[in-house]
Structure formats: structure tokens, C-alpha cells
Amino acid sequence: MLKINNLNAKIKNKSILKDFKLEINPGEVHAIMGPNGSGKSTLSNILSGKKGYDVSGEILFENKNLFKLETEERAHEGIFLAFQYPLEIPGVNTNIFLKTSLNAIKKARGEKELDALEFLNLVKKKAKELKFEEEKLNRQLNVGFSGGEKKKNEILQMSILQPKLSILDETDSGLDIDALRIVADGVNSLRKKDNSFLIITHYQRLLDYIKPDYVHVLINGKIMKSGGPELAIELEKKGYESYN
């Protein structure tokens, strides 16, 4: 599904990712773990098409060259990024935003767009599953939301937009244990044989709830070690220093 070959990324001449390689197949859950400044967020930014990086190498998503696609086109193809710091957008109603977004994706895929009623039903159902207060959906996007609510909102968006590849950038940071469980349940319910996940995290905590198939250790822009779920536990014990 996703193939990253020799990805190099620089920002203002500072090298951040170096010959980065990763392959994710349909249905797989990969976790990338690394300390602060290792390049984790750069990776998610580049996958979602954020500008300002100097990149070389190749990223293929379902055999399409991602570098040739705009941010929204990537979203249409089925890439979803759950942001580490979801933005507050004053004045933009959450429901309107979600509906506009969902229909933009459906339109791009040639599917039938939802009318207001169909959309509302869908949102209600999903919000309930994620224990997300419906009332909040009538508020401005993320404005006045707590950290946990913002993260839950990201997962809600994910479950509505039904992406093929979901990238979770430090989704666990700032979550209490209950919120963490709800978020993990949300992710697990979306795990299907065609859907893949890339979980980017500093701590092993989230991986207690979302069991990855593969774990990669990212240090200084390079994957230093890859393995199964046991690697996360080993990391927790030994710390990142031992991989330098």
C-alpha cells in the first residue's frame, strides 16, 4: 500500500530524514517510535503533503507517486493524518466542516455525496461510538475543546472519512487513560484487512491498546531497528540511548 524508498528530507538545509525506508501492506499496523527530534513529525507532515521541506527519494501510495499529489488529493486517495496538535479554527462549524470534507472526498472518488440528513445520521452514530458529545459538533472546530476532545475529534473524523491509511501522530500525548482507551477502541474498530495504520509515538503506552504488527525505532532520521510488538517493550525498558 505504502512504499517509501530512500526518502531524504531537509528543512533550511538541516537534514531530518536520511535514506528513510518503509513498506506498509494492506491490513498492517506499523508503529514508529523515536525520541523528540528524531524526525517523527516530519515524516507525517511529508506524507500528508505539508510544504516547506526539501525532499528527494520516492513515496508510492498504491503505486501512485505521492510527490505529484496535492495535500487534498492525498486525502482523496485515502490518506488521513490525525494531527499531533489539531488546529483550532474559529468560526468554522465542526459539522459543516466534516460534511464539506466528506463530500469532497466522495466526489473525488466518484461516489454519491451525502445529503444533510444522511450525514447527520452518520455523524450521530460515529459520535456515539466514540463517546463524543454531539453538542460539541455544533461548535467551532476545536475551539474551546480540551486536549483530549481535540484528539477524539481527530479519531471521529477518521472514522467518518474512512481512510485506507491512517497516520496517528502522537495521538496518545495529552490523553488520560479513559480517553486513551476510547481512542484505541476507535482505531481498533477500523482495523480491517484493507486498512492500514501508521502509529507515530514517543511512548509504548498506546501500543498496549493498539497492538502493532511491526515496530520501528527511528533515531536521527533513520530506522535503527525493526521488529515485532516485543520491540516496543524492549524499548520501554532500555530507552532510546542504546540504539544510538
Binding site: 496535492e70 495535500t71 489539531p86 479554527i89 474559529p90 468554522v92 464539506t100 470534507s101
Partner: peptide, 30 residues
Amino acid sequence: LNDDAIFYLMSRGLNYTEAKKLLINGFLLE
């Protein structure tokens, strides 16, 4: 216009024009 907000909206599938319109809409709506 807030570039990060545009990027956020685009990552959810809106094109630039739509994202801009939505933001301005929200900006004035207040």
C-alpha cells in the same frame, strides 16, 4: 490566511479554493 488552517482543511480533502472560502466564511460569520 492561516497556512496551517489551510493545510489542515486540505488534508481533509478540500481543495485550496474551498478551504479558503470556508475559512473566510468562518472568519466573517463570527
